[in-house]
Computed example of a mutant assay.
Amino acid sequence: MSIDTAPLIGILGAYGRVGAAAARFLAAEGGYRLRIGGRSADRAWRFTRTLGDRAEAAVVDARDSQSLMHFTRGCAAILDCSGTAFSLRGRVRAAVLAAGVHYVGMTDDGGSRTPTGPCSAVLFTGLSGTLAGWVPRWLADGLDSATRFSGWWGGLGAIPSHTAVSCLLAKRRAVDLPGDEHPQDRGTCDGEGPRDEVALPVPQAFASPTAPPAQAVAVRRVLPEELRQQAYLLRLEEASWHEVLKGPGVPAFLDRFALRGPAAGDGGALMAAARELAKASLRDAAGSSPYQVLYGTLEGLAADGTPVRRNALLHCTDVTGLVGVIASITVHEVTRGRVPSGVHVMAATLPPGDTADWILRHLPRATARTTEVPTGEPGTTTAPPAARRPG
């Protein structure tokens, strides 16, 4: 594909941490022209020079409709890493879709998810929920059916303020579940109740060699919106998700937010809460190297009817890079026409195996692998989706 005919992807906030990571990964993949956008012409130009001859710089202010319209012209898709989406309450997304261009937002803008027009819009709803919705699909790829899923996610690292907005919005949509009575207990799809502090044995994969020995660990059992959706689509009988929060700042903040968080329509207060969460994460991560760990288990039947258990392990030390990979492969899928029209959460659009491949290609020292063992249990069948809708 020549430079002139390659699809053009416009990136808002392209020289920020997540935007820059996504731009570098897309440039490394090839097959695209990139329009690097931001309010600083100097910063956009300096970053563009590092990406090669398929990138161009442009000044854009996402809050100015004329500026945004000019930036969008000629693009196949817009990747919005600007962090202004929520404060503008969906106006950026609406303007991009009205121009006949696909939209990928790295902040949940809090706007309507009602489909409008022929283009696709994909929203990042926080790292925990996105991984909770992707990893069951990764594990289920190629299975005849699946029955039970259990996942653990956590780590350390500073949370950017605009990413924290998506995290807090996701908390409002998640179902908090009681703590497990025993480590072997599994969470059911229809369980619901107040959150308890639990003392579960954390999988060894979550141990950090750089973390202080006395560092607090809080384990929360939740059912994110994204996992509820996949539990329904995969016809799971049981699904659970544990967040391993290294503290004390982030767990304490989330407790306060759950009890006295701002009203859903109070955008200013939510942005202030997101900044407070970002500061808490920065304090918790002080003195430790950042990392993210995901461990998941899925039980089901292989294509030949053999009962199997699949395990997944994802580990990386570049937290921003992980979000950048998720952003870049999502806009890749959208641009290639693999995402239907309408509004989607990112977890439902990530390709199961290809996402792991992108992580390994672009993140040094990352681990992303699955293993499978036969369980020796009798095969089981799952009920129709309507009989077992979770949540």
Rank of each mutant, 00 (worst) to 15 (best):
S328C: 09
L88K: 06
T335W: 08
I359T: 10
T382Q: 12
L88N: 05
E299F: 04
W138E: 07
V165I: 15
A199E: 14
P7V: 00
T371L: 00
R43C: 02
G37M: 08
A216F: 03
Y291H: 13
S281V: 06
C167V: 15
A216N: 02
W152T: 00
T349C: 15
P364G: 01
L227R: 11
D354S: 12
M1K: 04
R173D: 15
E238R: 14
R148Q: 10
V319P: 04
R73Q: 15
V373P: 04
S161M: 02
P178K: 04
V331G: 04
T147M: 10
L236N: 02
V202C: 01
S208L: 04
V198C: 13
G100N: 06
S65T: 15
W134K: 00
A285G: 11
A302Y: 07
L313N: 02
W134L: 00
L177A: 09
A368Y: 04
S289D: 15
S40L: 05
W153C: 06
I9L: 11
A272L: 06
D190G: 03
I329C: 08
G129I: 02
G376N: 07
A239Q: 14
I78Q: 08
G287T: 07
G379L: 03
R46C: 05
A258R: 09
R91Y: 05
R283G: 03
V308F: 08
V59R: 10
L26T: 06
I11A: 04
E192Q: 14
C167L: 14
Y291L: 12
V308Y: 10
T297M: 11
E238P: 05
L127E: 03
L12W: 11
A44P: 15
G38I: 02
G151W: 09
R283L: 13
Y232G: 11
G117H: 13
T210R: 01
W241Y: 14
L360W: 02
